[in-house]
Design a protein around this nucleic acid. Sequence first.
DNA 1: CTCGCAAAAGTTATTTCATTGCAAAAACCT
DNA 2: AGGTTTTTGCAATGAAATAACTTTTGCGAG
Lengths: 172, 172
Amino acid sequence: MARTAAERLQHEASQGSCAHAVRQEEKAARALAQAEAICRAHGVRLTPIRRKVLETLYTTHKPLGAYDLAEALEPGGRRIAPITVYRALDFLIEQGLAHRLASQNAYIATFQGDSSHEATAFLICEECGGVDEVTSSALTETMANLLNAEGFRAHTKVLEVTGRCAHCQDAH
Amino acid sequence: MARTAAERLQHEASQGSCAHAVRQEEKAARALAQAEAICRAHGVRLTPIRRKVLETLYTTHKPLGAYDLAEALEPGGRRIAPITVYRALDFLIEQGLAHRLASQNAYIATFQGDSSHEATAFLICEECGGVDEVTSSALTETMANLLNAEGFRAHTKVLEVTGRCAHCQDAH
DNA sequence: CTCGCAAAAGTTATTTCATTGCAAAAACCT
DNA sequence: AGGTTTTTGCAATGAAATAACTTTTGCGAG
Ligand SMILES: [Zn+2]
Ligand SMILES: [Zn+2]
Ligand SMILES: [Zn+2]
Ligand SMILES: [Zn+2]
């Protein structure tokens, strides 16, 4: 089944930065500022822990498990308990700032503001670990039609594709 | 996150048979016969354990966790270890006879022979626990286009939608 | 400022899901 | 039967997620 958290980290380390991560620092800074704005607007608090979790997700731009996050947050402070990470993740997901990749037991920051009625697919590269978030009106429409035809009222959509991203194929 | 195995079972018990399960016995019998044929054709063995797991999935027609299955197989024999169930599930999934619902940590029998290049969506009702397996050429095409546009070579597709099925809305 | 409340984080333990490693048994093939 | 491969048994462990309860923190009302 899904790669474990430890394997993910090792894989990432062995790969170094990939094209998915380029210029991630600047994007992360902007995204973080926007997240603060969103939280203010929603009247909720982006506490230090929540902020740090989100920041880690942004700068990594790869799926991280809750225990990965706990580890990543460790330096410069004491070890954070898993439950704390999960609570932060729950918060971030509620605010549409993060997303759970069910097929990986991992979490990732959301760049495009979760326009919740849109169908969003996550393309997960098995080679470099990068994740692309893609939507298209065609996809949204097709899903809507399909669900409509079945009379199914959707609550949560999980669209995850694993495989090989474009630049990992080139570099094969 | 996802409903636990125990909750699933309790939910099922509280609901009795729902429309998703009607005439499941006959369908299950036919599907099981077909599964035997498939295994013969593939030159692999549908052993008693594998067969029993598949049968349980067919007759239940609801997502079951590995430990649920271990429990379900218990009567009339000794307790089966989780690993054994997982091995049986791995086999069934390899043969395209079962499917893992990543969003539920649960497994379900596949009725339509997994024509592996088709995009199949699973509609999971949060009310009755029933799962419908749907495909459409439109969905397959849309996904193919989307992946093509991204230059992404797909290996595994996870399309799972949770919500409320048609008859659970009627009965609300 | 201090009291009181509610939200957040800490602590400890437990549950649920999945895998590893090795031994025994069964099925298959000469 | 003898040797090989596949399957199952068994015990322990790892990994992901949650539970129950306490303490701390942020913040407004008095
Ligand atoms: Zn990459
Ligand atoms: Zn890649
Ligand atoms: Zn139903
Ligand atoms: Zn239903």
